[in-house]
Write a protein that binds this DNA or RNA. Structure first.
Length: 520
RNA sequence: GGCCCCAUCGUCUAGCCCGGUCCAGGACAUUGGAUUUUCAGUCCAAGAACAGGGGUUCAAAUCCCCUUGGGGUCACCA
């Protein structure tokens, strides 16, 4: 049997990180088994602007490198891949169900149903469909329908039976149909409901394994009944746990984004974004936040890191392997090793994966991916010339492991701005310069040596400063902090001599002068 | 409320199906120490969990039952 899995997003204008994990597991399962991964767009309600709503979703797949064998843009033998274009399939299926007696026209009004539901609730009794429309004779039904009486189509549930599924992660799950209301499969306007359309499509697309989030587990009962009524073979099911908000067991939701800011485990991600996004003309908002996949791309995560984190959310290879490239996960993925409990998005772990994969990346690629950030932050101008690129390469090298996200590069403005607008960390300036006259004196003396340093590289500068402090009978610590604050404005950063070499002779001297003047 | 699902360190998880090798392993995070001109890193170390209660058994994180807690779902949404 050919494995065929699918992911069926509705075009919402963004890709949810939890949905991405579900998509990833579908993709992994298909690839592991040499099967097909299909993208189907559940746009049942007429979408106003489909392209705008679908674009970000496809972009997320492309960014992570998850390809689809059938679906939008690539087509396939089982199309169309948009539910809005599959009306004929649903119509045909409804007719079949009506003719076989597996479904019926229900002329009761929504209000009548509501009253019945409330009555059942008040009596603490399970609500069941009244099925009064079933009392009508075929002729009466036809007349009513012909007269235009509004009606929905309901599946006629066999109350004597039970339905069950052997779920690949939950095991045996069973429901008593005697407790089930007859589900509506078509609205009064004739359009199909989700549970029905999904089954019709999954049959037509020959989906072999339905891998979806746990929230759909309850839907499975109804869907199983529909497969049966349609005379179709049921696919295999796997209900994976949903991705929860960090540190919770509640489903991660875009609606709660305001609350997440106060979530201690989510905080790191928000803080990172606050430091990076404003510099490139963005900010954390309803349109750009950690619930969305594009957020991670925007602040400069590596696809490898996000993929690694998502893979490990609810799945593990063994008791110690953490860093895994995608092809390794493909080779070893199995539904049997998916956990049952909901998994909170682990921000710290995500950052740790990012550090790992960033560490694997060659310098050239780091530079390549940092450049767009510097351009957007107006630190360098476009087109980027060879000199700028070479300078950024030196900076990235000096930064080393301090550069965790590509977006981090925008925080090192001191290597790009003019000397007279260099900003100081005031606390550091006060402590290292204003409150330390001795350091200022040493700095003044070293300034002249710097002016004559040749060549102006890290090694030369290091021996120069060492010779200077030895001469003065002090330790490095007596002047180096003041030097750093004067030249970079900051209390911390890459190695002191790398900083000096990066800033260059002219600017170093000019900045020291400015700082010394500022003290007085 | 009905139905369904879930429950191991702060977090992600291993172990559970096939009881003993688990006074529960790893990673991340945290704390302490070492290294370094700062920060980051690196190295070393430490603390940190089987939700509770009953069984079954020579033996239970592992099997059974109950309780508690958490979550999902109950639409002419997807």
């Amino acid at each position: 049997m050919t494995v065929r899995t699918r992911f069926a997003p509705s075009p919402t204008g963004y890709m949810h990180i939890g949905g991405m994990r579900t998509a990833l597991f579908n993709w992994l399962f298909a690839r592991h088994n040499g099967g097909k991964f299909i993208l189907r767009i559940d746009d049942t309600d007429q979408q106003r602007n489909l392209d705008a709503a679908l674009g970000p979703i496809l972009d997320a797949f492309r960014w992570l490198g998850l390809d689809w064998d059938e679906g939008p843009e690539v087509g396939g033998d089982h199309g169309p891949y948009f539910q809005s274009q599959r009306g004929e399939f649903y119509k045909r299926a409804v007719t079949q169900l009506l003719e076989s007696g597996a479904a019926y026209q229900d002329f009761e009004t929504p209000d009548e149903i509501k009253v019945q539901r409330e009555a059942a609730q008040a009596e603490k009794r399970t609500y069941l469909s009244s099925r009064v429309s079933l009392q009508l004779s075929p002729a009466e039904r036809a007349n009513k329908a012909a007269a235009g009486d509004a009606h929905v189509i309901r599946l006629l549930v066999d109350r004597q039976r039970k339905v069950s599924v052997e779920d690949h992660v939950r095991g045996h799950v069973e429901w008593d149909c005697g407790l089930m209301a007859d589900p509506v499969i078509c609205r009064s306007d004739g359009s199909p409901l989700y549970n029905f359309a999904t089954v019709v499509d999954d049959i037509a697309l020959q989906i072999s394994h339905v891998i979806r989030a746990e929230e759909h587990l309850t839907n499975t009962a109804v869907q199983l009944l529909i497969y049966d009524a349609l005379g179709a073979k049921t696919p295999e099911f796997a209900h994976i746990p949903f991705v929860a908000a960090p540190g919770t067991t509640k489903k991660l939701s875009k609606r709660e984004i305001g609350k997440y800011r106060n979530n201690p485990q989510f905080k790191k991600l928000f803080d990172i974004a606050d430091q990076i996004l404003p510099a490139i003309g963005q900010s954390v908002s309803d349109a750009m936040n950690p619930v969305m996949v594009s957020f991670y791309e925007e602040v400069g995560f590596l696809p490898e890191a996000v993929l690694n984190a998502l893979s490990r959310l609810g799945w593990s290879y063994d008791d110690k392997t953490e860093n895994m490239p995608l092809d390794f996960v493909v080779q070893n993925f199995s539904l049997e090793r998916v956990v049952k409990g909901p998994a909170g998005l682990d921000c710290d772990k995500l950052l740790a994966y990012q550090e790992h994969w960033m560490g694997q990346l060659p310098l050239e690629q780091k530079v390549e991916q940092c450049l767009p950030y510097l351009v957007k932050a107006k630190r360098i101008s476009e087109p980027v010339d060879a000199a700028a690129r070479a300078f950024v390469a030196r900076l990235v090298t000096a930064l080393g492991e301090r550069l965790k996200l590509f977006g981090d590069i925008v925080q090192y403005s001191e290597y790009f701005v003019a000397d007279d607008i260099l900003e100081y960390d005031e606390k550091a300036f006060d402590k290292r310069l204003t409150q330390d006259p001795a350091a200022c004196g040493l700095l003044r003396g070293f300034r002249d040596r710097l002016a004559g340093a040749e060549p102006f590289d890290a090694a030369t500068l290091e021996s120069l400063l060492n010779a200077y402090v030895t001469e003065r009978g002090v330790g490095l610590g007596a002047v180096i902090h003041a030097l750093r604050v004067a030249v970079t404005g900051k209390a911390a950063g890459p190695g002191m001599f790398d900083c000096l070499a990066l800033v260059g002779r002219e600017r170093c001297v000019s900045r020291i002068d400015r700082a010394l003047q500022r003290v007085n």
